[in-house]
Design a protein around this nucleic acid. Structure first.
Lengths: 225, 225
DNA sequence: CCTACTACACTTGTATGGTAGTATGGTAGT
DNA sequence: ACTACCATACTACCATACAAGTGTAGTAGG
């Protein structure tokens, strides 16, 4: 693998970090995989230093487990942590949607309207990759409209732990139409300033991922702790 | 400075990390202070490597800002981030206290009762350092009783950004008696399973730190961004 | 006197060698 | 055949050397 393209703009460390993180979240490096500094440094054709520093960051995010003098493995998925991550995200998103339903800038609202229109198109064209991106941006816009950028960043950190189990239940089996309907209703709640409705809608929306955690754990036992 | 004592149990990197983090949060390294890897490595009598890896972690937590080839400074306090941290903590603590008021294990409840008794003693003895610790443990127990250990860890991460501004308004000027009364009421809400009361109590409790943020920013302008 | 350039003293970034601890497979001894 | 031991090949950890970029002070030239 060659990182030279990425290297132009950012440091070697950041490039290694991003590639590794992506590979872990995409399950290209499955949970439990043993990796070593030397192995990665050879693979990426860099020295061990930037690799080590990437390991430090990834370990802090809970994606790697480093055992001194023994080795490093990609963290197993912790189903307790996954549920708590969902819990945290639910309550933060609900707190923000309540703010949004109380007051929301007009230009952010119209941005969301455009986003919804693009979601409509993506579903009809079955472009689920773009839809995934639009879903992210939709939620991001709610936080931005409420001036809660840092909160969004924290949610992103938390979501890391939801990501891999979401990846397991292949992206295809999502009911995107239902998802779109929920987004539409959330938008309307903000527009009509209906705090209670927005709150219950978001709670419902966040409970989508609560299911089949045990099912996944049974299906992929070696990926779970 | 010598780290040899700490070195027995943990790695040099962790020792450096802990000391630096402590010094930053205690304002012994005030916001805006310029520090270099070499300077710290000489001071601690270690090589640059573990210092660098500590810097990576601290930068990720937002306590350091690293400018490549130029230098590293202790992050200025971001008042927007402080308020958002308070916002996040409030909603997570409220979500958990509602769980606690719905169902709470008896042994955790009695642990809290013992903690409250010790708080009573500390206030009378004006031992505010221990009181600070007991305050932490009190909230921790609520999370533990609800099996939300990971959520507590995230709250701890978030609280880092509250810590320094709380340190500025010297610990002494806290109304510990009022704090104790709030804790007592929170305990009773859990005991009596009064969800609504617990929620509003915690909201009030979390709003304690909302004040005088602008005052602090005026008093210590060079510490703020 | 003022400007522009250069040399130098910094900084962080990267590469590499050596150290200590761990796991494993093979071998000698029972 | 089985167990205990030892050599070996790993691992992450730490120290050090080198590279590359930045700011500044001092100096030469106008």
């Amino acid at each position: 693998m060659d990182l030279s393209q990425t290297l132009q703009s950012v440091s070697t460390r950041d490039a290694v970090y991003r590639v590794l993180k992506s590979q872990i979240l995409q399950l290209e490096l499955p949970p439990g995989t043993g990796i070593s500094e030397k192995e990665i440094s050879i693979k990426f054709n860099v020295s061990r230093t930037p690799v080590r520093e990437s390991f430090v960051r990834l370990a802090q995010e809970g994606l790697l487990e480093v055992y001194p003098q023994r080795g490093t493995v990609v963290s197993l998925i912790d189903s307790v942590l996954v549920e708590e991550a969902r819990f945290m995200r639910e309550h933060l998103e609900r707190a923000v949607i309540r703010l949004a339903c109380a007051a929301f800038p007009a230009n952010s609202l119209s941005s969301m309207k455009r986003n919804l229109a693009m979601q409509r198109v993506c579903i009809e064209e079955q472009d689920y990759k773009s839809m995934f991106q639009l879903d992210e941006e939709f939620h991001h816009m709610i936080f931005e409209g409420c001036s809660k950028k840092n909160t969004w960043d924290v949610v992103q950190q938390i979501k890391v732990h939801l990501n891999r189990s979401r990846m397991l239940r292949l992206a295809a089996d999502y009911d995107w139409e239902y998802l779109y309907q929920q987004h539409l209703l959330l938008y309307e709640a903000i527009e009509q300033q209906d705090v209670q409705h927005g709150d219950s809608l978001m709670r419902e929306h966040m409970e989508l991922t609560i299911a089949d955690q045990t099912m996944l754990k049974q299906k992929y036992p070696h990926y779970y702790k």
